[in-house]
Amino acid sequence: MTPESTNANNNDRRHEIRFAGSGGQGLQLSAKILAYALIGEGLYASQSQSYEPTSRGGLSRADLVIGPDEPDFPLATAADFILLLDQVAANDGAKIIKPGGTIITDQRLVPSPPSGDFRLLALPITDTAIAIGNPRIANVVALGVLNALAALASREALEAAVGALTPAKFRELNLEALKAGYGMAEAETAESAA
């Protein structure tokens, strides 16, 4: 399948997405960017969060419940996709994965990924961000991977959302990070299809 072929706009399904890692990785922003892109396409998003009272380090989690109208229950209970960017989030963060769902982990920062009844993709997200020029854009690389695989927002809407919600001086860098994420997801899709 091509990533754009099951845009959530075209059907009725609800999606639950979790972004989990450590404080300071920018995962709340990743969730906010995706939610912003989705509402521009006529969908509803409920975003909840959990984080510890430290500005760096400690578990940080953002959950999105996405659908065609206001969800009955706004908190995630069975995630279709979970993004894990830090080992600290790997245990508790993965608990709500739906059977057959997908967990995307960072190869470098999650050395012991969870295992179970789900598809696990361990990808060089942080390494790619470093190669582009800044480890701090790993959250946007990861967002690109996630959206390409989950086919939630259109690529144009996501690019526009990155532009709207990130500082102007980092815009080009963030768009490059998004592109790298898409590239990684497409390579992964091609590989699993082969």
């Binding site: 509803y44 409920s46 975003q47 909840s48």
Partner: peptide
């Protein structure tokens, strides 16, 4: 607290 901190469309 959940409603207070929840972001919804």
């Amino acid at each position: 607290e959940i409603i207070g901190h929840l972001v919804e469309t």
